[in-house]
Design a protein around this nucleic acid. Structure first.
Lengths: 139, 139
DNA sequence: GATGCGGTCTGTAGCCACTACAGAAGCAAG
DNA sequence: CTTGCTTCTGTAGTGGCTACAGACCGCATC
């Protein structure tokens, strides 16, 4: 009886508050088919259920871990079809981990270069800057 | 006399080869006003001079160091107006360095989380995966 | 002078993952 | 019934390019 309140489901703003995903982004996820089309009220407003809330949380968590939409799509498809193995999921994760490590490596190089450049700079008032000279160096 | 050959300047393909910047990207840089409109041949093809080659190299190097187009625009404006001080340039560089370090920090966190998740996974053939469980965890 | 071929031209659309509107309509409380 | 917040659809913008299509340039060769 009092279940009815819950059975009505969550409007999109509630979903947004609970997951931290922007309302427009939730609709975007629906458009690109990683979120299903939810029920609608008589007036046409979206009504989500608990499973859909969990799915959105999954997407949010995965995005925060840097998985691309396509990677998430792959994960969700496995889940939806129930035909994944733990090994497959592990593989996807390890692949993503490798790309994260690549990015870190690249940024560390940048960091070094920037530190080197900044260290040579007197920070003075004169319009004569070793940083600009480095940037202008011939390649 | 024999200078005339050089005075003709570089066509866009030559600029691309010398700097490693894609032809379409060079035109894009012109459109967004960080590269000037070069001379044209009678037929309408772009002809760049040596100064413009140096400018494009500057942009390329800066992009490789992760500076945003807007940051590069700021650097180039200082250079163009000749009214920069070394301190200003230093400031811009340090600001950029800070954002690079932020990114590295974020990625390290991701790396840790991914390693943790992957370590708990048996990689087995069973459709029961701790990675997915983690991703599905309530927030 | 015709031909061929590669370089270049403009303009437009696509990429990723959102974000930001405009203008209309739904919905709940007083 | 009004008020005021939420939600609706559809479209366009973000950054920093990249990828075409279809036409034209420019130089070498015959």
């Amino acid at each position: 009886m009092s279940d009815i309140t819950n059975a009505r489901g969550y409007p999109i703003g509630e979903m947004s508050k609970r997951t931290g995903v922007n309302i427009e982004t939730i609709r975007y996820y629906e458009r690109i088919n990683i979120m299903p089309q939810p029920d609608r009220t008589a007036g046409g407003n979206r009504q989500y259920n608990h499973e859909q809330l969990k799915r959105l949380s999954f997407i949010k968590t995965s995005r925060e871990l840097g998985f691309s939409i396509d990677e998430i799509r792959a994960l969700l498809e496995m889940v939806d079809r129930q035909d994944f193995t733990c090994g497959e999921v592990h593989g996807l994760t390890i692949g993503h981990l490798a790309s994260v490590r690549e990015k870190i490596k690249g940024l560390r190089k940048l960091e070094k270069a920037l530190v080197g450049m900044a260290a040579e700079c007197s920070q003075g008032d004169l319009p004569d800057c070793p940083i600009l000279e480095t940037l202008f160096e011939a390649r």
